[in-house]
């Protein structure tokens, strides 16, 4: 009967979707392992408790809140200490998202507890006394199955690999104080520079339109943005060639050394399809490629390829997508 402690991530005064994913994953893990309890811990500013209640809907038996004014921004040392303190109370595993902050937190918590850590899992299950996870390594080119032993393990979960499922419980509530003063952080957040308002994150967008050097110059990215806005639910990505040249910020880069994404639809415009780029997007459900070179490697993975000039095709595609969306 394993009990799991979930780090339910928040940003500002809101829960993140990955919090629901981790809670869902923990519920399924516990239910598949003979039953047990899921306790979800949320750390944030005053008021976060009200938002945390919904975690019961996704299978949390206990919702633990840690409210403190100093937790409005990410207080890595305080949150790690608070999670580790709680994790000592008889849990088999701590689950958290492999998000930017979850990646930061996981090793801190594991080191504090002297527990093994399984990163970026796409599946997790008990196998005898051990926990077995699957994790795409080698930049997504090899699926590694890892056996994790010991009485307590930290597991981080690949964002979007687990879909939130409602399994309502009448969750009990609990609250804890930060185990370390958020005011005493040695790493102080000076600023959080938000991207454009309403902009979808690459990791969460159902559609991604990406541009490469085939767009010829930075100004032509307008064509990529226009297509993204025609879809309405799309984010804009880029190749390293483009981020190197400063046409787009590094945070837009898709690939081995950028973001790794699995959207429903990925449109590659003027992208050659280098192996390092494919490492970031080959798990997209549907891939569209537009490239003037019929031999470009991107056509080997594209479900639908069009050979031709991106500068000519993108505006026509944008208009057609707008038209199709209207029909709905």
């Amino acid at each position: 009967m394993p009990n799991v402690l979930v780090f339910a991530e928040s940003r500002g005064s809101d829960l993140r979707k990955v919090a629901l994913e981790a809670t869902t994953a923990a519920r399924a893990f516990v239910d598949a392992s003979g039953g047990g309890e899921v306790h979800a811990l949320v750390a944030g500013p005053a008021g976060i408790a009200a938002k945390a209640e919904q975690l019961g809907k996704y299978g949390a038996d206990v919702v633990i809140t840690c409210e403190h004014a100093g937790l409005a921004r990410y207080a890595r040392e305080s949150v790690a200490a608070t999670l580790a303190e709680r994790a000592k109370q008889g849990y088999r595993a701590v689950f958290m998202p492999f998000s930017a902050n979850g990646r930061d937190l996981g090793p801190r918590v594991a080191a504090k507890l002297d527990a093994p850590l399984g990163s970026d899992a796409t599946s997790v299950a008990m196998s005898g006394d051990a926990i077995v996870v699957k994790h795409p390594g080698y930049a997504n080119k090899v699926i590694i199955e890892l056996t994790i032993t010991g009485p307590l393990a930290v597991i981080s979960l690949r964002p979007s690999a687990f879909t939130p499922v409602e399994k309502p419980r009448a969750a009990k509530t609990d609250s804890v104080q930060p185990a370390a003063d958020p005011g005493a952080e040695r790493v102080v957040v000076k600023d959080v520079v938000e991207g454009a308002k309403g902009k979808l994150d690459l990791g969460e967008a159902p559609v991604i339109v990406s541009g490469g050097r085939g767009l010829k110059e930075a100004a032509n990215f307008k064509l990529v943005e226009d297509l993204a806005s025609a879809f309405g639910n799309a984010a804009v990505g880029a190749t390293r060639a483009v981020t190197d040249d400063g046409w787009r910020p590094h945070s837009d880069q898709i690939g081995q050394t950028g973001r790794q994404v699995s959207p429903q639809l990925y449109v590659a415009a003027g992208i050659s399809g280098a192996i390092q780029h494919l490492a970031g997007m080959r798990t997209a459900r549907t891939i569209v490629a537009i490239n003037k070179d019929p031999e470009a490697p991107i056509f080997k993975v594209a479900d639908y390829g069009i050979v031709g000039d991106v500068l000519e095709i993108l505006p026509v595609l944008t208009a057609a997508v707008r038209e199709a969306k209207k029909g709905h």
Partner: peptide, 9 residues
């Protein structure tokens, strides 16, 4: 870089 934002520390 955090999702959709940059954190300056």
């Amino acid at each position: 870089e955090i999702e959709g934002a940059g954190e300056v520390v």
